[in-house]
Structures are given as C-alpha cells and as structure tokens.
Write a protein that binds this DNA or RNA. Structure first.
Length: 206
DNA sequence: AAAACGGGGGC
DNA sequence: GCCCCAGTTTT
C-alpha cells in the first residue's frame, strides 16, 4: 500500500500555508542564507541571515564590506569564518561572471564556493520557482520515516522522490518538510502524538 | 569513503 | 557536559 501523495501534500500545505517565504524570492538572499545554513539549525540561521542583509544586501555591498564585519554579523551560525569568506568570494564571482546576478542553472551555481547540490536546488526552487527538489537531512529523514523511500544517500532520495511526487510539487517539498522536521518530526524524539500526519505515517525508522 | 570545519541549543 | 544540527570540501 502506497501513500496518497495528494492527500499528504494537501495536509502539509494546510499546516504551513506560509511555507513560501517571501524573503527567498530574492535570489541573492536565498543563495547566501542557504550557504549559511550548512550544518546549522534553521532557527539560528534565519535571524543571522536577516541581520547580515540589514547591513549588506547586494553583491556590491558584500565585496566592499570587510570580512571581519561579515564574520561578526553571522557569528551565531556554525563555520562562520569559512562562510564569511565564501560569501565574499561568491559575491565577487557573481559580479565578475554574471553582472551581479545569481545564475538560474544548476551547473553555474555548483561552481560557486560552498554551493553543492542541496544549496543549488534550494535556490532554483525557492527563488526561481523551478521544478527542483532539494534534499537535506530533514527531507531525507522524513521521507524514510514515512516509508516513501528506503534510501541511504541524499542524491538517491532526490531521484526516488521525483518518481513518486508529481512535478508540480517538487519545489514545495523542501520547505514544507523542513518545517515539519523542526517542530514535530524531529531527528531525535519526534512528537508523533501531536503530528498531523500521525494517522498516515507508518513510523518507519523511529 | 571518511575526515574536517565550528558555534548554538536541547537534554 | 555531551551530542547533534538546512552540507560541502578536502584528504
């Protein structure tokens, strides 16, 4: 028996109607905040990214800024020194190669420092509204718990999920499952009692 | 394939 | 005080 995907998505959209965050519609914010999010909880990442963009919000302002100033603004996130350097270098490359714009294709994004497949997919899905499916640890874990896939590597999860979900849903999956994963379907001690998906979840991998 | 990068928050 | 977290890069 396979899960009703339309029913699953209907419930997720009802749970998190605000999941299409307006801030991510700025490609530069989507890119930089996602680079900042690596191995860092999203409730720490977002405030730090917002604080950074209050001061510097364009590639021009980032390259002009002192690295130490960027470091101070984002110092709540993990790897903040490495990330501050990447933010400067990404900004420099955007100005040099793309006239200060964020490119909207996977290959170009992957050439930027600190940008891997997950980050590139997030930018394509959230900022450019492309049919990209970004798989992070939340998407990977929850997809397996729901019994949708039985996968080990995130790349494998992306391939399998694309077979299961209609293409129109792909770009929404990441933010919806991240939100579910943050407060309910947590990595450790998930709150199944109060989960809106409790009746359709087989609770695999708990 | 595995280690390294690194500060914050939950327990 | 210990362990894990919106991954990517390097060994």
């Amino acid at each position: 028996m396979s899960m009703d995907i339309d029913e699953l998505m209907k419930r997720l959209f009802e749970l998190y109607p605000e999941a299409s965050n307006d801030a991510f519609k700025d490609p530069f914010f989507a890119l930089i905040s996602t680079v900042m999010s690596h191995r860092t909880r999203d409730d720490v990442t977002y405030p730090a990214a917002s604080k950074l963009f209050e001061k510097f919000s364009t590639p021009e302002e980032m390259v002009r800024a002192d690295v130490s100033e960027i470091e101070i603004l984002i110092k709540d996130v993990g790897f903040y020194r490495v990330k501050a350097g990447r933010i400067k270098e990404i900004s420099r490359l955007l100005l040099e190669k793309y006239d200060g714009r964020v490119p909207d294709d996977m290959e170009a994004l992957l050439e930027l420092p600190g940008v891997g497949r997950k980050t590139a997919n997030c930018v394509l899905a959230h900022a450019f509204l492309k049919d990209a499916l970004a798989v992070d640890t939340h998407v990977h874990r929850i997809s397996n718990r729901l019994g949708l896939v039985e996968t080990k590597a995130p790349e494998e999860t992306e391939i399998e999920l694309k077979k299961i979900f209609p293409q129109k849903y792909w770009r929404h999956i990441n933010l919806l499952l991240v939100k579910l994963g943050q407060n309910t379907c947590r990595p450790i001690s998930p709150r199944c009692k109060t989960c809106a998906l409790d009746d359709i979840c087989p609770k695999i991998l708990l």
